[in-house]
Amino acid sequence: MDAVDIGYLSLIACFLLLVIPLLVSHYLKLGIIHETIVSASRMIVQLAFVGVFLTVLFDLNNSIVNLLWLLVMVLAATHSTINDVGLDLRKLLLPTLASFIIGNFLVILYFNTFVVNLEHLFDARYLIPIFGMFLGNSLRGNIVSISNFYDTIRRNENRYLYSLSLGAKKHEAILPYARKSLNLALKPSIASMSTIGLVALPGMMTGQIIAGSSPILAIKYQMAIMVGIYVSTVMTVAIGIFMTMRFSFDDYGILKEDVFKSTSA
């Protein structure tokens, strides 16, 4: 059974629901009316473009083109991460990019080979949406971990330097901050795995059921996806912190100020 189509008038009716948060913002003076309208508009334009593009991509289903699109996705995620945490793009582009590539490409290759058992590993129908789920979650994890890592060291600079002055090696002084940041970034993924199905039905599972798949098949896919998301997030945030460290600290373990985005006019 195919999913019930949502007509354009029905989609307009859906967007009318946004009147509710806009009214709440107006009366409570939350100041999110403009932000909500801009975000919704960007979503419409971006998803319309992606919908047309993916239709062409799926019809073409060329491995090289599919991989190039994944690279575009990774570059966008890298830029978003560095920009959101206030670091210098030129200095940390390569290590951050490497963390996304290693953490997500290895997992998607393993996933398509041994879990889904695809004959065509780079089949666009599986490769792009599943990779997108892995990448989106590792993006959020990287932003949380890297942001917390560098902010915490800057806020506790005296304590960090004191550890170095007592004879701690660079990795020994840094490790407590890295450990705390990794734990913070991974807690949402752990919480999602422990409550999935009870608190909420995730998007992929819901989409498959609506599209006509049996609940059991949807559950098996969702379990596999959740494991893949968790593993790719762990790998990406761990590699992200430890690879950017090589460019962010000098030989004496001092954090370089030029790795942060300049705030000058």
Rank of each mutant, 00 (worst) to 15 (best):
I12D: 14
I12N: 10
I12Y: 12
I12L: 15
I12F: 15
I12E: 11
I12Q: 03
I12R: 00
I12P: 10
A13Q: 13
A13R: 10
A13Y: 14
A13I: 12
C14A: 15
C14L: 14
C14T: 13
C14E: 11
C14I: 13
C14P: 00
C14V: 14
C14M: 12
C14Q: 10
F15M: 09
F15L: 15
F15A: 15
F15Q: 08
F15V: 07
F15Y: 15
L16V: 02
L16F: 13
L17F: 15
L17N: 01
L17Q: 02
L17V: 10
L17S: 06
L18T: 04
L18I: 12
L18V: 03
L18H: 05
L18K: 02
L18C: 07
V19I: 15
V19M: 13
V19A: 14
V19H: 04
V19N: 03
I20K: 04
I20W: 07
I20C: 02
I20T: 07
P21R: 12
P21A: 12
P21Y: 10
L22E: 08
L22Q: 08
L23N: 03
L23K: 09
L23E: 03
L23Q: 02
L23H: 04
L23F: 11
L23M: 11
L23S: 02
V24F: 13
V24K: 11
V24N: 04
V24R: 10
V24T: 08
V24G: 06
S25N: 06
S25I: 13
S25P: 04
S25F: 08
S25Q: 10
H26C: 05
H26E: 11
H26N: 07
H26G: 04
H26K: 15
Y27E: 03
Y27A: 05
Y27S: 02
Y27G: 04
Y27M: 06
Y27V: 13
Y27R: 10
L28S: 05
L28H: 06
L28P: 00
L28G: 00
K29R: 15
K29L: 14
K29M: 14
K29F: 15
K29C: 09
K29Q: 11
L30K: 10
L30G: 12
L30M: 12
L30F: 08
L30I: 09
L30T: 07
G31M: 08
G31V: 08
G31T: 07
G31P: 13
G31W: 07
I32L: 11
I32M: 11
I32G: 04
I32W: 02
I32N: 03
I32K: 03
I33V: 08
I33L: 04
I33P: 00
I33D: 12
I33C: 06
H34R: 15
H34F: 10
E35L: 08
E35Y: 02
E35H: 06
E35G: 06
E35T: 14
E35V: 09
E35I: 08
T36Y: 01
T36G: 04
T36F: 01
I37N: 00
I37S: 01
I37L: 12
I37H: 00
V38A: 05
V38P: 00
S39P: 00
S39F: 03
S39Q: 02
S39A: 13
A40P: 01
A40Q: 01
A40V: 03
A40R: 03
S41R: 08
S41N: 05
S41C: 05
S41A: 06
S41F: 08
